[in-house]
């Protein structure tokens, strides 16, 4: 009995937590289909705001720029994060390890305004010294994004590598495989779900960033969060609700597809090579 009562209490608290998480999101979606311009009073069903969204050239251009930056950022960040994760998880205590570890964990918590300001000053000083970058825009935003999202990818890759059964790599090496071959045949397949998760996370981090991009952007490079921010400052608008709903839809779809793919791969991988639990922490690794 006692056990049951306690579990009801904790279930209730947990349910409240989830309601808190999803209530605002639900309200966003519901009011994107509102006929009335007022975001909070229901005036009947309508999809007019979606039409208005797709006629808004400024939003579309900004969305396209943001998607380009996000995709490039995710690819670079995964490469950099894979390197850093390997170094931190597999190379033991090398010189400079604590420096690298510190530079990896600092961006995870560093306030955005500090990252944005500091990297902007770097670009300005570099321009004075070398003439590059001539103008700030897509490239500078991309560099800034890669720098902080690589840290997140590193954490994901590193914890998966630490998690992974090292006996497999050792067995392959005992059987005469060269390090490069071990990496390609054993390590990479096992950590590939973490790489996929890291790619998706880096993609959304970049797509989401307002503060850092505002600092390092220049004339002509306006990303989607900047457009959303300047519109939100003027007040709530159902067009933003429609945009939010579309973003939610795309992200949820992406996550579900990635989740299914990872789940399958993990099932296969486990049957093929992994002994126990190599992929147990697929989800919690993500932050």
């Amino acid at each position: 009995m006692r056990l049951k009562r306690r579990s009801w209490l904790s279930l209730g608290l947990m349910g409240l937590g989830y309601a808190f998480l999803y209530g605002p999101i639900a309200s966003l979606v519901v009011f994107s289909f509102n006929k009335s311009r007022l975001v909070t009073v229901w005036g009947g069903f309508s999809t007019q705001w979606y039409g208005e969204l797709f006629r808004n050239r400024q939003i579309l251009a900004a969305a396209w720029l943001s998607l380009k930056i996000a995709a490039l950022n995710a690819s670079f960040a995964v490469a950099l994060g894979l390197f850093a994760g390997l170094a931190l998880a597999r190379f033991g205590r090398f010189r400079g390890r604590s420096l690298l570890a510190g530079m990896i964990s600092a961006p995870l918590v560093m306030p955005d305004v500090i990252i944005g300001l500091s990297i902007l000053l770097l670009f300005v000083v570099m321009q004075q010294l070398t003439g590059w970058p001539e103008t700030r825009g897509m490239t500078t935003i991309l560099i800034a994004h890669v720098t902080f999202s690589a840290a997140y990818v590193t954490v994901i890759v590193q914890s998966r590598l630490v998690d992974m059964d090292i006996a497999m790599e050792e067995a392959a090496m005992d059987l005469g495989a060269r390090p490069w071959k071990v990496f390609m045949l054993i390590t990479l397949p096992v950590i590939s779900p973490a790489l996929l998760a890291g790619w998706l996370l880096a993609f959304t981090l970049s797509l989401d960033d307002l503060v850092i991009a505002s600092f390092v952007s220049g004339p002509g490079a306006t990303t989607l969060p900047m457009v959303v921010y300047s519109s939100v400052r003027l007040g709530v608008s159902p067009v933003i609700n429609a945009l939010a709903t579309l973003i939610l839809l795309v992200v949820t779809g992406g996550i579900v597809v990635a989740g299914v793919v990872m789940h399958r791969r993990e099932g296969n991988a486990r049957r093929k090579i992994t002994p126990v639990g190599a992929g147990r922490r697929a989800v919690e690794d993500r932050v």
Binding site: L210, V228, I247, V251
Partner: peptide
Amino acid sequence: PFWTSFLI
């Protein structure tokens, strides 16, 4: 929710 836009 963490994957969806923070601003939104």
